[in-house]
């Protein structure tokens, strides 16, 4: 998610994790849960973002972002930790309706929309928490690696 974030040559590497562990501060974690619950409030047997337990997965996502994107995201999460919930809702609503605005404002809101979705929706719908969301929506795609490995061994005999 970048408009201007890849490192210039000679600078720290683009797209590879930084040396230091990358994680969220407690405030940023709180902001992620609050933002996540606006985007994914839960619906029947589908848990909310915070209930799903997927937020911890952000540690697997952050290290691979470009530094500028990561920095923008962390700023947004810090803001979400402090803002009243209606204000967070307003941010998400404006971002989701980006194309109703004239350019270049629309581009800024599209960037925000994809950034928010890229984190919140990816974490939740990757089903890395305890919510079992894939089961609820019927996603059961698999690759039977065991059968393939067995077939390979059979061929080698």
């Amino acid at each position: 998610m970048s408009t201007d974030s890849q490192t210039p040559s000679g600078m720290p590497r683009a797209g590879l994790p930084a040396e230091a562990p990358v994680g969220l501060t407690p405030a940023q974690q709180r902001g992620l849960l609050r933002l996540g619950d606006v985007v994914i409030p839960g619906d029947g047997d589908l848990p909310s973002f915070s209930e799903s337990g997927c937020a911890d997965g952000i540690d697997r996502m952050l290290p691979y972002m470009y530094e500028a994107d990561r920095s923008s995201l962390l700023t947004l999460l810090e803001a979400c930790a402090r803002l009243p919930r209606p204000a967070i809702r307003r941010i998400v609503a404006i971002a989701a309706a980006a194309d109703r605005f004239p350019e270049p404002a629309a581009g800024v809101f599209r960037l925000a929309n994809i950034g928010i979705k890229g984190v919140v929706q990816s974490l939740y719908w990757s089903d890395i928490g305890t919510g079992g969301v894939h089961l609820v929506i019927g996603h059961d795609a698999t690759i039977n690696e065991a059968a393939y490995e067995a077939a390979l061994k059979e061929t080698e005999r």
Binding site: M1, G15, R60, G107, S122
Partner: peptide, 20 residues
């Protein structure tokens, strides 16, 4: 999520300057 983060530049996607 891991394959997207790790197999693509930008941790999944890069956006055009107008995010279109």
């Amino acid at each position: 999520m891991d394959s997207s983060s790790q197999l693509y530049w930008g941790g999944g996607v890069e956006l055009t300057t107008n995010a279109e």
